[in-house]
Design a protein around this nucleic acid. Structure first.
Lengths: 220, 220
DNA sequence: AACCGCTTGTGAACGCAGGAACAAAGTCGC
DNA sequence: GCGACTTTGTTCCTGCGTTCACAAGCGGTT
């Protein structure tokens, strides 16, 4: 009575599955019926063997000698990632970045729906963005409770990010995506994922400069 | 005649160094003179031993029994990451996200300076953002050549991202940060780093839902 | 001057992700 | 109906990143 497929999928694999899903959707729209691991891997920018290993976490879903059936695989990944269920998200901090996210159409098709936009600045409140209206931060707890939102996105200045995080966690949000350049502390059971745009640039620049100076005394 | 310190610093370490730098700057502003690895690690959200190993790539820079001198360590990391030198960047695609990045003050203090904002839409051209004016995409090559920009940021729709990437690479850009939801192909010598916002959300949601179903028959 | 506590830096072990190679399996052609 | 080719799924292995644990070193104290 053992489950043949362990419930845990590595995080790195999950991230790639999301990429495969996007490629598969494009292929399906283009009318392709099947695709081999080599082609799919090339389109996703990964190694074919790694791709097959990623897909093996979903159980056998390809046909040997042929490849993968595009719509079937797409639906399978969608189901595993939980794309078909709609997830309620709230977004706090409607500055430039927050506005960009609220307006980004790509989230809706991935199962995410913003149900509340919040800001502390008077000037922002009432502003319509992406079909919603910016509300005062005071209403945060009420909306989270009423909508059962489980995901919160923080795009506030760094100074207030921790307090927003505390309020989100207290209101019942279980997952937080943080764009503010601070490391947040959250209670047990709430996990925080950080995206730091300036760190990304910094790493990019560093590997670029590192490549220009291969090694002293060993010019490859 | 071996170099005691290999020139290569792991990418994961570089990303964390950028975080330490931010924490150290805040500590320096607050007037702290020294800090121990434990406190610094807690503020950065990492393991103390890992932090010390990261710093060991810079050579010995702490005092045993005391800790790290805050301004000294900050300057050391700044020098390694190349923060003091100004790097010219161009940004293509001035939609919501592009505008947010162009306006973000955090880049300037990390050594990055936008020298050109480009868009294909007539309506955007001429619009002032963050001290610059949006220019037509046709001028991309001229500006990259004139400014010797080595970093390009792509925030265009997915459909045109590859062609923008090609043009950037051909114009001499060595590093590209891609926010468009496609996997880009670039020539040898040009490296591309991808930030996919919807993938981040997807991963966040998945680990959240995975945590709710720990394992069938073994409720931790 | 010697001791003691504190902290760094490093060496070793563990776990994990990534890549290559191989066997199983299904399809197409004859 | 049978053989050969193609492609998947899996296994092994190598390398890297992370964590734990300990020795070395410095400051403060008596």
């Amino acid at each position: 009575m053992i489950q043949p497929r362990p419930r845990t999928i590595p995080e790195a694999t999950v991230a790639r599955l999301a990429v495969y899903l996007r490629v598969l959707s494009a292929l399906a729209d283009a009318g392709r019926s099947t695709v081999a691991s080599g082609e799919l891997a090339a389109a996703a920018g990964v190694n074919p063997a790694g791709l097959r290993k990623d897909l093996s976490h979903l159980g056998p879903c390809g046909v040997r000698g042929v490849g993968y059936e595009v719509p079937t695989l797409r639906d399978r990944i969608s189901r595993v990632l939980g794309v078909e269920r709609s997830r309620a998200c709230v977004l706090v901090g409607i500055g430039n970045l927050g506005s960009a996210l609220a307006d980004y159409a790509g989230f809706g098709s991935r199962g995410f729906e913003f149900v509340g936009l919040f800001d502390a600045a008077e000037a922002r409140i009432g502003q319509p963005i992406g079909g919603l209206t910016v509300r005062p931060i005071e209403e945060l707890e009420d909306v989270v409770t009423a909508t059962q939102a489980s995901i919160g996105v923080i795009t506030t200045p760094a100074e207030v990010a921790q307090s927003v995080c505390d309020r989100l966690a207290a209101a019942g949000v279980r997952s937080i995506l943080n764009f503010a350049p601070v490391t947040l502390a959250a209670p047990e059971g709430v996990d925080v994922r950080k995206v730091d745009l300036s760190v990304e640039l910094q790493v990019l620049a560093f590997v670029g400069q590192q490549r220009l100076v291969p090694a002293v005394g060993e010019p490859a």
